[in-house]
Simulated scan of single mutants.
Amino acid sequence: MKLGLQLGYWGALAPGNSHVELAQEAEKLGYDSVWTAESWGNDAFTPLAWIGAHTSKIRLGTSVAQLSARTPTACAMSALALDHLSGGRMILGLGVSGPQVVEGWYGQPFSKPVSRTREYVNIIRQVMAREAPVTNDGEHYPLPYKGPGAWGMGKPLKPITHPLRKDLPIFLGAEGPKNVAQTAEIADGWLPLYYSPYRQEVYADQLKGAKEGFEISAMAMVNINDDLEQALYPVKAMLAFYIGGMGSKKRNFHKELMSRMGFEAEADRIQELFFEGKQEEAIHVVPDQFADEISLSGSKARVKERLEAWKDSPVTSLLVMGDTSLLRDMAEMVL
C-alpha cells in the first residue's frame, strides 16, 4: 500500500508555506502523492503548481477539481500545463461536487451528473490524445457550440501544445452506485470520500468493471491518541458536518452513502439535528463504529493493527492529513 498526503482546501486563511513544507516532508518519507482540493475558496490547480515547483518526485493530484468550475477543455489545459511543468507527475482528480455548490456558486444546473461526467472525461481524453480536432455531440458540452447566441463560426481544434502524456491519469471522486460503476469503467482511479475496509461488499459490484492497474486512493482520517473516544471525536465532527450540512433535505449524497453502509436511522437523525442547529448533538449521534471503520483512530499500536484491514482491501493508496509527526508515524507503519 502507498501513502498520499491530502492537503484539502483552504479555510478562512491561506496556509502560507506550510503546505509546501508538508509536501516536501512527505516526499522525503516516500509518500507517493500529494493532493489539493477546492470548494468555494481557493482553486485546486494553483496550490498544486506551487507545491510542484518545490518538489521533484511526488505525484501531484487534484482531489477534486470541480467539473462546473471550468469547461472540459479549460481543465485539460491546466492539467496539460502542470504535467509538463512537473515532468509527468500530474493526476487529474475530478468530481461533480453537489447541487448547492454547482447551482449556488457556479450558477449552473446540476442535472444529470453521471452523463455530464462521462462527456467531460471523454473531451479531456481527446485533448490529451491529440489525434484529431476535439468534438463532442453531447448535450452538456457541445463542441463546436451551436446553441443560442452562437455566431456559427466555431471550429474544432487540437491543443497547440503537445501533451506530455496521452495517458495522463484521471481519477474521479464518486459516491453514488452509478457514478462509482462509471468511474471503474472510464477512469484510471477512484477517490472515495468514505471507505470502510470492513464493508467491501458495499462497492464490490460497482468496481467489477475496473481495468488492470485501476487505483483506489481512499481518504482516512488518522488520529493517534490513547483515548479512543477523543481520537474518534474529530472524525465524528467531520461526518456530522458532511452528513448534516453538506446538502439539502431533499438530496445529500454523503447521507445517502452512510445509509447504504448500514446506518440509515442514524443518518436521518444527524441531518434532523443539524437542520435544527443542534450540531453538537448531531456529532454525538454519529456511531462510533462508523467513525472507527472509515478512519484510523486510537493508540499507535491500535492504528498499526487496524491498518491490516486496509492492506487487505482493494485500496491502493491511503490519503492522510496531518502534521509532520503524523506523516512520519504513518510512514513508519506503512512504508
Rank of each mutant, 00 (worst) to 15 (best):
K57S: 09
I58Y: 02
I58P: 03
I58Q: 07
I58V: 08
I58H: 03
I58F: 14
I58K: 09
R59V: 07
R59P: 15
R59L: 08
R59S: 14
R59K: 13
L60Y: 02
L60M: 05
L60P: 15
L60Q: 14
L60R: 09
L60W: 00
L60T: 01
G61I: 00
G61P: 07
G61T: 00
G61D: 08
G61S: 01
T62Q: 04
T62W: 05
T62R: 08
T62V: 04
T62H: 04
T62K: 02
S63E: 09
S63M: 14
S63H: 13
V64Q: 01
V64G: 00
V64D: 00
A65S: 10
A65R: 14
A65L: 04
A65C: 14
Q66T: 02
Q66L: 15
L67P: 01
L67C: 08
L67G: 02
S68T: 12
S68M: 15
S68L: 13
A69R: 12
A69S: 15
A69M: 12
A69N: 11
R70I: 00
R70V: 03
R70P: 01
R70L: 00
R70N: 01
T71R: 01
T71V: 01
T71K: 00
T71H: 04
P72Y: 07
T73N: 10
T73M: 13
T73I: 11
T73W: 04
T73K: 05
A74I: 06
A74P: 01
A74W: 02
A74K: 04
A74C: 06
A74S: 10
C75Y: 14
C75D: 12
C75I: 09
A76S: 07
M77S: 12
M77P: 00
M77E: 12
M77C: 03
M77F: 11
S78A: 14
S78H: 14
S78I: 05
S78P: 05
A79Y: 01
A79W: 04
L80Y: 08
L80P: 10
L80Q: 09
A81Q: 12
A81H: 07
A81S: 13
A81T: 15
A81W: 07
L82K: 06
L82F: 06
L82W: 00
D83E: 02
D83C: 07
D83N: 09
D83I: 03
D83S: 07
H84Q: 11
H84K: 08
H84Y: 08
H84P: 09
H84L: 11
H84C: 10
L85T: 08
L85V: 08
L85Y: 13
L85P: 05
L85C: 11
L85K: 09
S86Q: 12
S86G: 06
S86R: 05
S86K: 10
G87W: 07
G87A: 02
G88K: 04
G88W: 10
G88R: 05
G88H: 10
G88N: 05
R89W: 00
R89A: 03
R89M: 03
M90W: 02
M90K: 09
M90I: 02
M90A: 15
M90V: 03
I91C: 13
I91H: 12
I91F: 13
I91S: 14
I91A: 06
I91T: 09
I91V: 12
